Simulated assay, not measured.
Amino acid sequence: MRDQILCDIRHDADVGELRRRATAFCRAAGFDEESLGRVAIVCTELGSNIVRHAGSGGQVILRQIAEAAIPGIEIVALDHGTGMSNVERSLQDGYSTAGTCGNGLGAVQRLSDLFDIDARPCRGTAVICRIWSRPRPNQAVSPFATGAFRLPASNETVCGDIWVIDQGNGRLCSLLCDGLGHGARALEAAETAAAAFLQARDEPVVSRLERIHEALRPTRGGAVALIEIDPDRNRLIHVGLGNIAVRYRHRGQWHHLLSRQGIAGHILADLRPCETAFEAGDLLIMHSDGLTSRWDPAATPDLFERHPLLTAAVLCRDYRRGADDVAVLVIRRSEPCSNTF
């Protein structure tokens, strides 16, 4: 994918290849030598942990990011290995269960600007990191924490599912689009939807979806859902067309938001927005149908208190349909917090 690299990790040689691809990826984005060194160490440690502790292997996913014109990299390591019985102890330098010096995860945490981990025993390990190429300027604090993750269908090199987060005027508006089918033409439809979404920035969500529908006419179309959150009014507005699932947790209870049947670009239903309360502490999850709808928040409640990127990545790992593209977007309304160890 254009902004994302997937690296399968099974053997020591794969770790070296991961390190080379990550540093090349970041050098092209403008990282200096010090930041490249941090990326190289983090990727080496995460890849090595997969080789040592996940018998069936795992994946490390690299994604280019940017904030205030400063490039960065998002690193997500996923496996279905043994997990950890004591995560905090595993983050201490000198602790190892594999006979090594035990500096791996502790070093990853220190070298990362953002770090979070989920490692339940017998369920596997998931680690997320963000590393910026240089320090970012102080910015206004956002009332939202967001994270998103996507993977292409089996045997595909590009993912036709896209998300966009658009913040301005104190509000957050998000799009999730699943381009029909797989491959390059699905990606083309999804990118067209994303461009139309941003071009209609000042319009209400229903108008934005209508603009997307018109833009998608020359493409194969897609399923689309839009969310607008106004923290001053503690309100959330949703409108959707097609099979994009939306769940939200409000005051500890989970609810569904339903989209209209149709295909953006080809079959437009009578769009009816839904408005509901969305307060500090509430959580929203949007996902394409590449994720099974059978995931149960009650099975792993702690996961939904982690950083939204970690939540999205673990849901993709554990509940994806391998034959389809998948994208998950997680938004938490909260007071500022790092959600890291």
Rank of each mutant, 00 (worst) to 15 (best):
C177M: 12
V164R: 13
S174Q: 05
Q167N: 06
R185A: 13
P204H: 02
A200M: 09
P204W: 07
I212C: 02
D161I: 08
V205K: 00
R208V: 11
G170S: 08
I212D: 00
D166G: 06
G160L: 11
D161E: 13
L180R: 07
R208M: 14
A200K: 02
L180W: 07
R201I: 11
L175R: 04
W163D: 15
I162K: 09
I165D: 11
L172Q: 09
G181F: 01
P204S: 05
D161L: 05
S207P: 03
G168S: 13
Q199G: 13
S207F: 03
A184Y: 07
Q167S: 10
A184I: 08
G179F: 05
L187N: 05
C159L: 04
P204R: 03
R171G: 03
R201C: 11
Q167M: 08
E203W: 04
G181M: 09
A193P: 02
D178F: 07
E188S: 13
L175W: 05
C159W: 01
R185S: 15
R171Q: 15
C159P: 04
C173W: 01
R185P: 00
L176K: 01
A196L: 03
A200E: 09
L209N: 00
R185Q: 15
H182F: 09
R171E: 15
V206G: 09
T192H: 07
L180I: 15
L176N: 01
I162A: 06
D161P: 05
T192Q: 15
V206Y: 03
Q167G: 06
C177F: 02
A193I: 05
V205Q: 03
